[in-house]
Structure formats: structure tokens, C-alpha cells
């Protein structure tokens, strides 16, 4: 079963994302959490992660810097990254996708929107 890494500087948001995934019936075995891009990079490389959900505005290393660093590391390049962020502008979405993000979800989101975006990467019960 899949392992999902959630990178967000808000512990509350990490908890909300986990709850929404569990309630939506998406199959996840384990959640790994990181509070910024730098911690996310360490955990993405050292764990067997199947999907990464990443915020944009974070201290130490932003989400877009994480995407660039992770994709250019040459490690585990097949792991999908979905940005989950308040940054909803077209330019930001394009920037994320051109740097290697596979999906984009804008906060606030409904459980249905989350399920729809992550359904491409996770199986449903």
C-alpha cells in the first residue's frame, strides 16, 4: 500500500489533508510529514515514498524550490508530486508543472476535489 509524504509548514493543514484522504476512501498505508521543503527533501530521499503533496509558501525551502531540488537530484524521479497550496495563479501552476510537479490543488479544497486530484495517483477502496 502507498506511502504519502505531506510537506506543509502547518501541522493543522497536514492533519486536514490526512483526514480528507482517509475519508475519501483513497488507499494509503502510511503518512510521512515534513514542515518545510528541506525536511521534505530529506524524507523524500530516505523513505520509500509513492506520492508527495507539497505546499508552496514555507520557511527554509519553498515548495517550488523543493520540486526543483528533488527533480534535479536524479533520485526517485518517478514519484509524482502534487502541489497543495493557496497559490492559485496560472503562472504559478505553469511554473510548478514546468519544473516537474504532476498535479495542482488550490486551498481551500473540498474532499471531492482532493479525491479527484489524487485519484490519478492513488487507488480507491
Amino acid at each position: 500500500m502507498p506511502k504519502v509524504l505531506i510537506i506543509d509548514d502547518s501541522a493543522v493543514m497536514r492533519k486536514i489533508i490526512q483526514r480528507n484522504i482517509q475519508q475519501s476512501g483513497l488507499l494509503v498505508d502510511e503518512f510521512v510529514e515534513a514542515g518545510d521543503g528541506r525536511e521534505g527533501l530529506e524524507k523524500a530521499i530516505s523513505n520509500n515514498i509513492d506520492l508527495i503533496l507539497c505546499d508552496w509558501n514555507m520557511p527554509n525551502m519553498t515548495g517550488i524550490d523543493f520540486v526543483k531540488a528533488f527533480r534535479s537530484s536524479g533520485q526517485k524521479s518517478n514519484i509524482p508530486i502534487v502541489m497543495v497550496t493557496t497559490e492559485g495563479g496560472e503562472t504559478k501552476i505553469e511554473e510548478a508543472k514546468s519544473n516537474g510537479a504532476n498535479g495542482y490543488l488550490t486551498k481551500p479544497f473540498t474532499p471531492e476535489q482532493l479525491k479527484s486530484k489524487l485519484g490519478n495517483f492513488l487507488l480507491v477502496k
Binding site: N57, T85, T86, E87, G88, G89, T106, K107, P108
Partner: peptide
């Protein structure tokens, strides 16, 4: 606050 401001910013 972040979600409200983020959407206004967009």
C-alpha cells in the same frame, strides 16, 4: 488567514 489572503492574492 493564509487561505483568505492567498485567494485574494491570486
Amino acid at each position: 488567514s493564509n487561505m483568505i489572503a492567498g485567494n485574494v492574492k491570486t
